[in-house]
Design a protein around this nucleic acid. Sequence first.
DNA 1: CAGTGAGCGAGCTTCCGCTTGACTT
Length: 770
Amino acid sequence: MEEKKNLIIVESPAKAKTIEKILGKNYKVKSSFGHIRDLSKKKLGIDLEHGFKPQYVIPDEKKKVVSELRKAVKNAGHVLLASDEDREGEAIAWHLSEVLSLPDETTKRIVFHEITPTAIKQAITSPRTINLDLVNAQQARRILDRLVGFEISPILWKKVKPALSAGRVQSVAVRLIVEREREIHNFKLQSYYRISGEFYLTLNQKTYLLKADIPEKFPSRKAALEFLEFCKGKTFSVLNITKKPLKRTPPAPFTTSTLQQEASRRLKYSVSYTMSLAQRLYEAGYITYMRTDSVNLSSLALNASRKKIVELFGEKYAKTRHFKTRTKGAQEAHEAIRPTYPDRETIPGSKAEQRLYDLIWKRTIASQMEDARIEKTTVTIGTEGSDKYFIATGEVIKFEGFLKVYSDRNGAEKAEETFLPPLKTGIPLKYKTIMASEKFTQPPPRYNEAMLVRKLEELGIGRPSTYAPTITTIQQRGYVIKEDRPGESRNITLLTLNDKQDQITEKTNKETVGKEKAKLFPSDIGMLVNDFLLEHFTDILDYNFTATVEKQFDEIARGGVNWQQMIEKFYKDFHPRVEAAEKITHKRTGEKVLGKDPKTGEEVIVKIGRYGPVVQIGRAEGDKKPRYASLRKGQLIETITLEEALDLFKLPRTIGIFENKEMVAGIGRYGPYIRHDNKFYSIPAQTDDPLTITEERAIEIILAKREAEKKKLIKTFDEDPDLQILNGRWGPYIKYKKNNFRIPKKQDPENLTYEECMNLISEAQKKKNK
DNA sequence: CAGTGAGCGAGCTTCCGCTTGACTT
């Protein structure tokens, strides 16, 4: 009789494929595609009267998986449940055993943390049973999250706006963004001065320039000026030179969070883009699993990396290292994210996939390389009668070590060196210039997606599989908006003492401040919901809430606490707060009175209206209707001033007549514009303002646009009026029936024939359909 | 690329964590 194959069930199909390859013909390996059962999507799914008993259902999209697993179990000998070794994995194993009615005698639970032949074979020889305490910890986690989410969200629908949501993770993420915005807004800028000098020295008929700074801040223009006056005509000298060896250690291999941060910093990828690229790399077998909190590398990876490093750079560059996770709540069910085969430097695929792989490869290899050794030289420069010293530093790399593949600073491609001229103590120095430049203290930075992930991870909130979805959710709910801001110009004072006339000159420079790229800003709704939740659910919004309940889940997992009792205790405190929040009568609109309209004396009010944030002048009384104007992008109820609010009523405004038609200035969806004869002309925001733009300037803009339009049309064809060759923002292109097509660089657009154009179009369409 | 801002009521929305496709844009 034929021996039945044993069945191994893992979570991921890609993993199943790999393991099947490793184990060969005696094993069938199937995947559960994550959880197979969950609480109902629509209902609470928890029996509050009977010990919070969860009501699990198999979601429609999982029915096929389950029926296939049933079939596989029927044909199998032993069943080995090999889901991940963490709370969720244990629960998956338990749900599988329940749903598939697996008998104890033929069912085993096995775990491994890396997909290597040794690890898997070792796991098979040491099976255990399902750890029900760990499963219960997962159930408690699941139920707590469901209670929080499904009891608070409906309150928001009633008291704020439909379809909003709240949760243990997302609401704290929003809170971080809201509070940071307020910190930035309340930040009091302080001006101070930094003094730096350029000195020169002559050695063996060669002149060297040496730049040095005074580390202390000068509190005022007066203090800076006094110091410059003092320096007039003084000779400086090198007081001290110290050389100090420094070493730099490579960073640990990637986890989900650090991969997202580095891909954001170096490649400017959004968190979700990074994850979808990583998913493709994983499925193609190029990298290990991309949702992990572990920095651990398998011994197989350590060996292969070492071999590659020796081959590329030589023995002295290799150093095998074991990294330890310091992350709060890490469960370390997988390895770090690394190339499956560290000897593979490049992979086929899209440009973006290749760049992400390159980053992962470099980070992994670097983690197994020697420290970089750097010699840092510090030179102290001073003059008699002053206790302020200029400091110059130089850094020379003595041994590159890991910096050969992975520079650690600011995402720069290469590690940077700074050199100093050959100096000796006591050498006199003449100054060329001594400059005091005004600086401002800086508010804390706004979060971008990856910085937010890092903060969440630091607080132990969320898991590798949820970072990207959480960030998408808070944007989809409209709590947070990812956008760019142009920044504003501000004046800074520059005082320069020059050796030419030994005179101090003063100059005003401009610098841009507050420029932002892809940063997270809270919306009015985000702020309103945050304040509402903070008022009624202080505990859940607490940054330590997750850490606190995690400790209790750990207790359950250790078998010390009963999960129902834990939830019971939580709910006894939580549910009355839900009821209290439901009792408030008014809808929250965030209404705020800004002041009085100087023209009419009526109240100017901002609030969230039916279609979003709005300013309102006057209250509705009898027949009297208030006037309304929507807030603009970037304006917030919390920070808008009375003047800004009143400005919103000044547009659109008629600025004059041109060719017997009115010109109207306004601000629309795509920025400031002039409307004339039903055509729109955009006003360049950097140079003009629709509130103040003159008739003459408006005509200028209209004429300039007409001129550009004329130049835009390069060629038309008698054969087909739908076909045009046009001049666009990025050069000439073909337009055909609302679609645009590129013209190859080598072709001269003026001489293209009708046939050539049609060929280009059909080729482009063929490519697209592939 | 503009302006909406009354009110009622039915039916819908929602959490976090595990996994991928199957869709459209």
